[in-house]
Each structure stands twice: as C-alpha cells, then as structure tokens.
Computed example of a mutant assay.
Amino acid sequence: MTPFSLLDLAPVSEGATTADALHQTVSLARHAEALGYRRYWLAEHHAMPGIASAATAVLVGHVAAHTSRIRVGSGGIMLPNHSPLMVAEEFGTLATLHPDRIDLGLGRAPGTDGRTAQALRRNLDVTDNFPADVMELLRYLGEPQPDAIQAVPGQGTRVPVWILGSSLYGAQLAAHLGLPYAFASHFAPPALDAALAAYRETFRPSDDLDRPHAMVAVNVFAAGDDAEGRRLRTSAQLAFANLRSGRPGKLPCPVEDISAHVEPAMLRVVDQALAVSATGGPETVRRELSAIIARHRPDEVILTGQIHDPAARRRSFEIAAEVMADL
C-alpha cells in the first residue's frame, strides 16, 4: 500500500466564516487520523479570503493538540517570508510539545501577491537565498555547534524537513541535500515527470535519508457517483478561475454546469492545473488514483480537495482512504 496523507488549505467556504473553517480543520484532522492518513499538512497563504491557514505554525500546533497520533506539519512554510532562526524556534517548540509528530515542509514562493509580500517584510532582493536559508535552518535543528547561534527550542530536535516544489529547482535542491521531496502536482502538474526524474537520478544520501522519498499531491473529489464527484469539483474550478482572474475569494458553491460560469479558454487553463485529480464515484476514483500511482511511482501520496460542503469533503476523504488502503 502506498502511504497516503492529507493537505488542508483550511478553506473558507461561501456562507461561512474563518472561525468555521478553523473548526472544520480540527474536525477533519481528527477524521483523517481515524481513517489512517499518515500526515496532516497545512499550507501558508496570505491575503486569501478563502484560505484560513496563514499563521501556519499556529494552526499546526492547534491541530497537533487536538489529535494524538497523526503527524502534523506544513505543506508548507514559505521560507522567504521568515527568518530561518524563527522557523527553527517555532517548529522546535512544536516538536518539543509533540515529539515525533511534526513535519516541516519548505517552499520557495511567497504564497501571495507582490504587495502582500512587501507587507510581510520579505527581502525583495533578486538574489535567491533559498538554498542558504534551508541549510541555515537545518543547522539550527541539528546538534549544537560550538560558538554557533542556537535555536532554543529547536537545536537537536531534528524536525524532518521536506523540500516542496513545482519545478526542477526544488527537486534538484532536495536531491542535493538528501531531503524528502513533495511536488505540488495538485495545482502545477506540467513539470511533475521531469522533477521526479531529476530528484531520483541526482539524489545524494544524507544523515537524514539514505534514498529518495518523493511525495505527489493529488486532488480528490470523491462522492457516491461520478456526477456528484464532478459537481463537487466545480468549487475548485471556480476558485482557481477567480484566482487566475485576479479575484480571489471564498470557496464557491458548486454548480451544475461549470461551462456556464467559466469561459472556455479559462476553463482549459483551470483543468490543466487540476489535471492530477481523481474525480467521481468510488470505482472511478480507484481507477484514476491507481493510474496516477502506476505512472509516477510515488513513495507517498498527499491528497487534497477544495470541496465547499464540510460533510461532503469528509466523505470524499473517507472514500479516498478506502481506495488507497486497497491499492
């Protein structure tokens, strides 16, 4: 069986509040734990009315405190927005409170627009400091070094660090550092094959990992039948179209006919972005997940799904867990 995990953006649905979204995140995490999901990751986004996970480390701690076994982490922390020392202290604290349950996935993008990135006090220099920042963070989480700055808590916790990416860049960095790699195929699939190949072919063993470990992100919109699965998917299609049009908002209600709401050219862009998906009833989801796994041979799959109704979202992840357990 391919291990399976869950990526949550803490969606704020139309007609709901941010408080509702955060409550549903805890409920879903408990549900995922009971269903056998290995990890529950949360993603950092800013100035997005439909995403409630901006303070990612805070939410990771909240979810970890309300669960008992499932690993909880970031998918990911956008490192250019933060000081490596502060990230080490935050996740070192989390790992101290919840031993052997915390993951730290790192991304290179700001997770927002340019104006908000400036408000985050990012270093907007064109120089790419991501590799150096990752290595600095790894030092803070490793064993103490003489006369070096220490992260307290953090030093010696060896929180598992993942590199996230949607291009060859992250794959090559993860391979060079000997770290696990997660590809954002749930919204940016074009480079998936090339990135996985680059990661596996150039991987260098490290003290943390002796062989490549690649995770692939997959959208799941599962329901009782194919028609309902396709209807649930329309919320994600509408949200993506709104984002690409410069109108981010709360997660829309599903519609019966997506073509009546999104222009053909935009719909093609959206469907290309959502190409790595399993949509429909249990048998269709089984067939599509099986095909994705057979093609890409991931060491782990992380499932996500922007579904408007929390009950339908929980049921989708139930169906997905049943399918994954049988594959």
Rank of each mutant, 00 (worst) to 15 (best):
G249R: 07
E288Y: 03
A239V: 08
L267E: 04
P254S: 12
F240P: 00
P205H: 04
A275Y: 00
A191V: 06
R286T: 10
K250P: 12
I258P: 07
A222D: 10
T234G: 08
E263G: 14
D257F: 07
E263D: 15
G281F: 00
T279A: 04
A222K: 07
G281M: 01
V285C: 01
A191W: 04
A197N: 05
R233V: 10
V216N: 07
G249D: 13
K250I: 11
H213W: 14
V270W: 01
A214C: 05
P248S: 10
T284F: 02
V276H: 00
E256H: 14
D207N: 05
P205T: 03
R233W: 15
S245N: 13
L267K: 03
D208P: 00
P282H: 04
A265Q: 10
P252V: 10
A260H: 06
P264N: 05
V216C: 12
L196P: 05
D271G: 03
D193K: 13
G281W: 00
P252F: 11
P264E: 07
S206Y: 04
P264T: 08
Q237T: 11
P282Y: 02
D226I: 13
E228V: 15
A291S: 11
R244N: 13
D210N: 09
E288A: 11
A291Q: 09
E288L: 06
S277Q: 12
D193W: 01
T279Y: 00
T279N: 00
G280T: 04
L243V: 15
A260N: 04
T279W: 00
K250F: 09
S245Q: 14
G229W: 12
V270H: 03
V262S: 03
V276N: 00
L243H: 08
D210K: 11
V218L: 11
S245K: 10
L196W: 01
A239I: 09
A273S: 15
A241N: 10
D208I: 00
A260V: 07
D210M: 07
R200L: 08
R268K: 13
A275E: 08
V220W: 09
A194C: 04
R244F: 13
A222N: 13
D208F: 07
H213R: 14
G249L: 11
A217G: 07
R204F: 00
V220G: 12
A239H: 09
P212D: 03
E263A: 15
Y199H: 06
E228G: 06
S206T: 05
V262Q: 04
L274K: 00
V270R: 00
Q272G: 11
E228H: 15
P254D: 12
D225K: 11
R244D: 11
D257P: 06
L289A: 04
D193C: 02
E228W: 14
F221G: 02
P252Q: 08
V216M: 09
R247S: 13
F203D: 01
E263H: 06
S235P: 12
A194G: 01
Y199D: 08
N219M: 12
L196D: 03
P212F: 05
M215E: 08
P264G: 07
Q237P: 08
S259C: 10
P205L: 05
C253S: 15
A227Q: 15
S259H: 14
F240W: 11
S235K: 09
H261P: 10
G246C: 10
D207R: 06
R233L: 15
D208E: 08
